[in-house]
């Protein structure tokens, strides 16, 4: 029975990803739709990051510290790896500090 759940889960997830990619192969001509898709990535990433990052750590304060460090470094155009490693280090240090206090 568990195997059936796993199969159904895999097929559903794959179809959600594969159908839009294979059914809409031609470039979209409609200006509104084109513009819409132009704005989708940034809007989607933003919605996924906040406020979720605040509940991704043991304490919302450490999540906020990680967020602040990442935004500051990204504003300075630091590399992707540096931004992510620094924000994760900041979270770790913040949690350690909170526990010490």
């Amino acid at each position: 029975m568990i195997w059936l759940y796993i199969l159904v889960m895999a097929v559903t997830t794959y179809l959600i990803r594969a159908l839009p990619l294979t059914l809409f192969k031609k470039p979209i001509r409609n200006r509104f739709l084109k513009s819409f898709l132009h704005y989708v990535p940034a809007a989607c990433l933003a919605a996924m990051t906040f406020p979720a990052i605040l509940s991704a750590t043991e304490n919302w304060i450490s999540g906020a510290v990680g967020l602040a460090v990442a935004v500051a470094l990204a504003l300075c155009r630091r590399s992707l790896i540096l931004v992510s490693v620094a924000s994760c280090t900041a979270v770790f240090l913040a949690e350690w500090l909170i526990k010490m206090l």
């Binding site: 990433l45 990051t49 450490s62 630091r78 590399s79 931004v83 490693v85």
Partner: peptide, 20 residues
């Protein structure tokens, strides 16, 4: 705590991509 801190890496990536 280590696992959670590492999980923040993914959010850090999103931020590094969106902000610029």
């Amino acid at each position: 705590s280590v696992r959670m801190a590492l999980g923040v890496m993914l959010y850090g990536m999103f931020i590094a991509i969106v902000v610029p």
